[in-house]
Design a protein around this nucleic acid. Structure first.
Lengths: 237, 237
DNA sequence: TATTGCCCGATTGTTGGACAATCGAGTTTT
DNA sequence: AAAACTCGATTGTCCAACAATCGGGCAATA
């Protein structure tokens, strides 16, 4: 079956404008403190309506790149005022970048395991055990096991009590969920199920006994095993 | 059924609308796959113009929360498609949240120190020593010392070789720079300068000798000292 | 019957113009 | 000299269209 490429017909005009202005800023042509051209000037420049320019400007403002004031104009913010940290998934095509992201998630999960062991409440422990039970109930490495796995890690992250840590770990895990699926497909269904469950059991045990060091160690083993199984070589550039 | 509150005039209208819709989504009232009300309907609901609604919608789309299609409408994306992880600085007013963010930065910096000790190149080491020299050259805890301090931490983050880790550590540090300034103002200029420099020297020494464990320990001590000096109580909720 | 082509309403994308609110600087008044 | 005022410029909001696209229904046809 022939595969047709989806034509990128120009895309959204505000996207293009926002990218153009953003390029100007990151290239240093527009330095912090400088005023952007007025909306009407930009509209004339690009040959579009002012509303289109406005949406582009609004986007940059919501990203914290610029700051607009009625009657004044739009000024470029210093980098320290950038209000958002954005993980650009378009940059994930490279293997290097994926390895970096994988490593970052591993570090955070290990830390999260250690903290969760210290602070976990009884209800956290209960949620973790039910998630692990769901994993045990699966006869094979199917889609629902991946879901239960994700649930286990999510519970662990929330058990830290740190909302930021939980959010970013959860986010990274969800973004890297495809990798576990890839692991299953590449590695086959052999003893992968047992190994995975055993690794999680070790983590749960350490969290249950509130042993921080053991929790970190168990999670490190799990992450290490996962990366090794995936064949993602981290730490070697 | 999704229920939106009447908005109060006063802030950015698109901001308020975007927040309302976002709340509805995160509360589960609008589940992935659901269609949002049409733009005209939302405009009528909130009593604003369609342009305002459009800016709000554009914002949510650029955040990856929804996906709009001409002729169809706007559908809520599954969480896995969320392309951005956003740190909302507006939520930092609470002391709890600030403590959480501080803890997250600490964890990442400790990990970064350990990895940097393993992987640092000679040029990384050189950059770190010059940054520390700049700190030593300051006669008091002035603005340029804060800059040199930030430079030291930035060099350490880049020395890890992990671009994602470096980016997020750098971002969090820049966002928390005001806290070090606050520390200086509250704590006074006494022996703070010497203590700070000594802590950094320990980190540099461990990185120079490629001693991972010592680097982690030194950074942990530095972070712990900084939090204690700031009076931010972490880990106790 | 099943498929194809077409029409039509609905919805977003874009345009253009208009007015309100606010800011900054120059000007006037005290 | 300081305060108040005027005024042009710029962003914020509103309104009314038209264009582009989608999805479903409907009829024509093999």
């Amino acid at each position: 079956m022939a595969q047709f490429k989806e034509i990128r017909r120009g895309g959204y005009l505000p996207d293009l404008i926002a990218r153009q202005v953003m390029d100007q800023i990151s290239a240093g042509e527009l330095q912090p403190g400088d005023l952007l051209p007025t909306e009407t000037a930009l509209a004339d420049l690009f040959g579009v309506s002012r509303n289109v320019v406005r949406e582009a400007i609004a986007r940059l403002r919501s990203d914290g790149v610029i700051n607009t004031k009625q009657g004044r104009g739009a000024v470029v913010n210093p980098p320290s005022a950038r209000a958002t940290f954005r993980v650009d998934m378009a940059a994930l095509t490279s293997k290097d970048n994926l390895a970096d992201l994988f490593e970052l998630r591993g570090l955070l999960e290990i830390d999260a395991a250690g903290i969760a062991a210290q602070r976990r409440s009884p209800s956290d422990l209960e949620a973790l055990t039910t998630a692990l039970d769901h994993m045990r109930a699966r006869p094979s490495f199917d889609e629902q096991l991946i879901e239960a796995d994700a649930e286990f890690h999510r519970c662990l992250a929330t058990a830290t009590g740190n909302s930021y840590l939980a959010t970013i770990v959860d986010y990274l895990s969800s973004r890297l969920k495809e990798t576990t699926r890839a692991t299953r497909d590449v590695y086959g269904q052999g003893d992968l199920l047992d190994v995975t469950i055993t690794e999680h059991e070790r983590v749960l045990e350490a969290v249950a006994t509130q042993d921080q060091k053991a929790a970190r160690q168990a999670m490190a083993l799990h992450i290490d095993g996962a990366t090794r199984r995936l064949g993602v070589v981290t730490g070697e550039k």
